[in-house]
């Protein structure tokens, strides 16, 4: 039930990508536990603005766990300690009175810091542009029910498609690998007949773009899967591996 807690916030502050960052500690007093984590940061920012300081910059938008804009590495976990939830779905009742909460940006060479806790995730768009689509134009497509798709396949594709592109997988991975993200998209389209036509091309193009952008190699630690706010399974990575190897062997 509702109560108030006080705690220390240890937050990473960094002016720009090239500048050196450091932690700053802020005291937070009497925060209601039914406040969301981002609302708590709003309160902090309100305090900072009232004190004439610059507010902490962090990405956020929908605040209902779907846009993938929010990030934050909280107490050693991307999107904080809750499982299957984004930072914006995290509530202060998860934290204890008197504790120190450490908040860091995603740390990966693929996601350079823009300011404070905001990072540049455009690399994901570049990977998508390399092949994360079905190459069709608008119009001239068959009736939606023309190709029956088994419920099982459609559900699996939906599991993969629920990726919100937040970057938690890269943030969680000690190798800075984007395999979970890439595999989710490749899987979604490889599972559906519409996407199978160019599945081989897609797997090769997206993977090579991922490598080119400097993301690391997957070593199957499963940290991505454990931290993914949408619980995307690494079975998608196995599928990507399968698709990619098959594509290369048939070259």
């Amino acid at each position: 039930m509702e109560k108030n807690i006080s705690f220390k916030l240890k937050i990473w502050r960094q002016r720009g990508p090239k500048e050196k960052g450091q932690f700053k500690v802020y005291e937070m007093k009497d925060i209601p536990t039914d406040t969301s984590f981002l609302e708590m940061l709003d309160i902090l920012n309100e305090q900072l603005i009232n004190a004439g300081e610059e507010p902490v910059v962090f990405d956020h938008d929908c605040r209902e766990g779907i846009c993938g804009m929010c990030s934050l590495y909280i107490n050693g976990h991307p999107h904080g300690p809750a499982t299957g939830a984004t930072t914006c779905q995290l509530y202060m009742r998860r934290f204890k009175d008197g504790e120190t909460i450490t908040v860091e940006p995603w740390r990966s060479a693929g996601f350079p810091v823009i300011r404070d806790l905001m990072v540049d995730r455009r690399a994901y768009d570049k990977i998508m542009q390399a092949g994360g689509y079905v190459s069709i134009n608008t119009g001239g497509v068959p009736d939606a029910n023309a190709i029956p798709i088994s419920k099982e396949k459609a559900d699996l594709a939906m599991d993969a498609a629920s990726c919100i592109g937040c970057g938690a997988c890269v943030a969680a991975c000690k190798n800075g690998s984007a395999m979970l993200f890439v595999s989710a998209k490749v899987s979604q389209l490889a599972l559906l007949p519409q996407g199978q036509v160019e599945a081989a091309r897609r797997a090769k193009a997206m993977l090579s773009k991922m490598d080119e952008l400097g993301f690391g190699n997957c070593t199957n630690t499963r940290a991505c899967e454990a931290e993914c706010p949408k619980c995307i399974s690494i079975s998608n990575i196995a599928r990507l591996n399968r698709e990619f190897i098959a594509a290369k062997l048939s070259d």
């Binding site: 960052g21 050693g76 860091e104 990966s108 693929g110 400097g214 690391g216």
Partner: peptide, 30 residues
């Protein structure tokens, strides 16, 4: 692979990092 992976991880390490339960210790220390 390790050199590439460390490079991909970036120069700054996390100050606090916690291993999720489902991640084997061995997998991160191969």
């Amino acid at each position: 692979l390790t050199i590439q992976n460390r490079k991909a991880r970036g120069n700054v390490r996390y100050a606090v990092s916690e291993r999720p339960k489902s991640v084997e210790w061995a997998s991160q220390n191969m």
